[in-house]
Design a protein around this nucleic acid. Structure first.
Lengths: 154, 154
DNA sequence: CAACGCGTTGCAACGACTCGCAATAGCCAT
DNA sequence: ATGGCTATTGCGAGTCGTTGCAACGCGTTG
C-alpha cells in the first residue's frame, strides 16, 4: 500500500526534490536503505553549508550505528543524482550544500576567517572569462577562493 | 672561512632566493637545521607543482629519518617567508609550488583529470572582477577551480 | 512465503595532515 | 670549549576521508 500522497486533493505539485528519491534510486537499480533515509532526513533540515563531519554527527544522533564510510558513500551517490553538491573549504575539508539553492561560489578571507558567497552576477564574470578565453566550463560551486576581504587589507 | 661568494668578480647579484635563507632565518631568531636544509635542497630542484607527500618522499630519499610533521612545519615556515606557496588541489590535497614563478591559478578538468594553468591575463579578469565588485583581494594561487575543459564538454 | 542475486553496509587499515609534549640541539654568551 | 636559553624535532594520538573485502539484507522471482 504505497502512500499515494500525490493524489491528495490539497497537495501541491511542488514536491520537495527529496520526495521521489526512493523512486529515482529504484529506477537505477539502487536501493532505499535505512542509512540513506537517515541521511536524507538530516539533509532536509540543512541549509547553507555543512561539512561532512557535521552531517555524520547529525546522522549519529538519529542512528547511533552510523558509520562514516557509509555516509560518505551515500553523499557521493546523492551528488551523482544532483541533490547535493560538495566542494572544498579553504583548508581542503569537504563542504556540502543542498542543491535547490542557487549555485554559487565561496570566498574565504584569510584575514578574518569569514566566508562570503559570490553573488551570481559576480560569479558569472568569472565563469564567462574562463569560458571565453579557454573554453573551460567552470563549476564555481566546488571551490572556495581565498584572499582578503575589503575590511582586511593589510 | 665563510664562502663569500658575493665578492667573486664574475658572480651575478641575481642570487637564487634560496641562498640567503639561513640569514633570513637568523634575522628572525629562527634556526638553520639539517632538516630544513634537506627540504630546501629538495625544493631547489622542483619545478611546477608538488604535493606535500611527494616532498616528504624526496626528503626521505636524502635523509631516511625525515618525519612528516617536521616537513609540514618547515613548509609553513617557508611559506611565511614567501618562498613557497601552497594551495589545495581539486581533491583537497595540498600542493606546493616555488614562488619565483609567476603567480597563477589552476583549473582542474573533472572530465579528463588534467590540470591547466590560468594565464595571468585570464587570472587578472577574475581578480579584478572580485576586487571591483566586492573589494576582495583574491589569492588565485591558493585554489584549483574545477570544471570541464573545452575537450570534455558533455 | 522462501530462496536468491547483487547493491550496500560495517569494519579495518591506510594515507594525508595536525597538534601537544618531552627531549634534542642550534646558536649566542661566557 | 662550556653552558644555557629556547627554537625545533620526533613521536604518539587524533581527525578527516578513502578503499578493499566479507557479511548482510533489500527487493524481486518463483
Amino acid at each position: 500500500m504505497p502512500p499515494e500522497q500525490k493524489a491528495g486533493a490539497t497537495v501541491r505539485p511542488a514536491v520537495s526534490p527529496w520526495d521521489d528519491i526512493a523512486e529515482r534510486l529504484h529506477a537505477n537499480g539502487l536501493r532505499w536503505t535505512p542509512q540513506r533515509r537517515t541521511l536524507i532526513e538530516v539533509l532536509k533540515e540543512q541549509q547553507g553549508h555543512v561539512t561532512a563531519s557535521e552531517l555524520i554527527a547529525s546522522c549519529k544522533e538519529r542512528d547511533r550505528t552510523t558509520t562514516p564510510s557509509t555516509v560518505y558513500r551515500a553523499l557521493d551517490l546523492l551528488e551523482e543524482l544532483g541533490l547535493v553538491r560538495h566542494g572544498h573549504g579553504h583548508d581542503g575539508r569537504e563542504e556540502y550544500h543542498v542543491l535547490p539553492d542557487q549555485v554559487h561560489g565561496h570566498l574565504y578571507c584569510v584575514g578574518c576567517g569569514t566566508t562570503w558567497e559570490i553573488r551570481p552576477e559576480t560569479g558569472a564574470v568569472i565563469v564567462d572569462a574562463l569560458a571565453a578565453q579557454l573554453g573551460f566550463d567552470v563549476d564555481l560551486s566546488h571551490v572556495t577562493i581565498s584572499g582578503r576581504c575589503a575590511g582586511c587589507h593589510d
